[in-house]
Amino acid sequence: MEHYNMNLTLKVWRQKNTKEKGHFETYNVKGISSEMSFLEMFDVLNEDLVHENKEPIAFDHDCREGICGMCSMYINGRPHGPWNATTTCQLHMRAFKDGETITVEPWRAQAFPVIKDLVVDRSAFDRIIQAGGYISVNTGVTVDANATPISKVNADKAFSTAACIGCGACVAACKNSSAMLFTSAKISQLALLPQGEPERHKRALDMVHQMDEEGFGSCTNTGACEAVCPKEITLESIARMNREFLSASVVSED
């Protein structure tokens, strides 16, 4: 692909803290390379802002290789921007044309309050995992590898749901701000494996309960979450959670 430079107009959400009302600021960035990542473009803008003695834009980022789940920009009406199966850090500027205006917003959800500018508090996800997204095992002698037989199909499915990086794009895209794709991925990765079996029912009940407590909406199966998921987790995962929850509710003695 041919390299080119571009000038862009950015409309970026600025918000001092959780309590303050935010607003959009417009910035012009010049000479952006098509080979830059979206975050590198923000680095260039922030450097300009620092030189002008202005407050740089706060945004989340960490690994910048699409596996940590920290970056979280809502770009032109879509979480992580226009490319499918891509995190913001892996979105490259060649996705945009010279002279384009790009609107960048934080994830918007009651359960994800804005901390500053484009940074939102996603600790609600941590609390959902703490509610049951683990297995209890005794420490001790290392178990022999391959001691527990697992079918290839289930191993693959568990792996692909475990690919969830917890970025929250599913919540950001959902018209109901539902966290069901995330929660179902975390339930699925264990429900599909024998190690997850002992706490299976309790896990489904506790994690769904915590998800509701955190103030996420409920699912209406529009499929927006799977369309934007950078790890391509599918609605099959949500259906599995529904099954797990239904059977757990039936057998539960609470």
């Binding site: 032109n76 009406g77 369309a227």
Partner: peptide, 12 residues
């Protein structure tokens, strides 16, 4: 707080 830009048809 609603999004300023919402591209609904892109995802559903």
């Amino acid at each position: 707080v609603q999004y300023a830009v919402f591209d609904g048809k892109a995802n559903s």
